[in-house]
Amino acid sequence: MKIAVLVKQVPDTATQMKVAGTAKAIETAGITWIVSPYDEYAVEEALRIREKRGQVEVVVMSLGPDRVKEALRSCLAMGADRAVHVNDPALAEADTLMAARALAAVIKQEAPDLVLTGRQAIDDDMGAVPAQVAEILGWPCAYWIMEEAIADDGKTVRIGRQVEGGLEIFDVPMPAVLSAQKGLNEPRYPTLKGIMGAKKKEIKDVKASDLGLAAEAPQLPVVALEALPPRPPGRIIPGDVATAVKELVRSLREEAKAI
């Protein structure tokens, strides 16, 4: 069995984001890059499937510039077997659909039995790529999965997807695309052995032309990137608790009209 895991490298959650001079991109200086946390759940789940079933190859795939190799290497250090890096300046401004087409093309070449990824990358927060990859491949897809169990025959996977007010349990025929929600598992730390072993594992570089991708422009170009407008200054309500609480309720009712 082969499992593909789609990961994206994103700025660490503690990063203060700034807009670059072009007003269309972020200022990347000083950013600590990490594997998007939801994608880590996907990597972890793939490794658990391998531990449970044996004879499973875990291939991580990512799209982006050279620095993405670090993210792939940290997935290899966690235990993934090898990686594919779609690294092509032609895809530098890719929107979700272009990214999905590129990743779907890699997946087609690798022909895995299952694709796992995070519910969204915590940079553009679009959460569209898993569904779009599935659509392009014509595969079923399940979003925000909280649990997963592949049938013994390896033909279907039983998943629980999170919806408003509950969990829907489905049997999904494989190959399929699953997007991981927080709570699916607790990702492991890479061990030192894993880190030392990662450099011996393959990271294959591919270009858009290797994937037979036609040149295209994004369907959803970013026109501008802006900082959030600053919030008007607030106020600390003074006085003892009883006084402050009364004043808060009055303010919410009369000034803010929030209740």
């Binding site: 290497r73 730390y189 890479p190 030192l192 880190i195 030392m196 990662a198």
Partner: peptide, 10 residues
Amino acid sequence: TDEQQMIQAM
């Protein structure tokens, strides 16, 4: 080295 940075980060 890359490994040393990863070990430090871990």
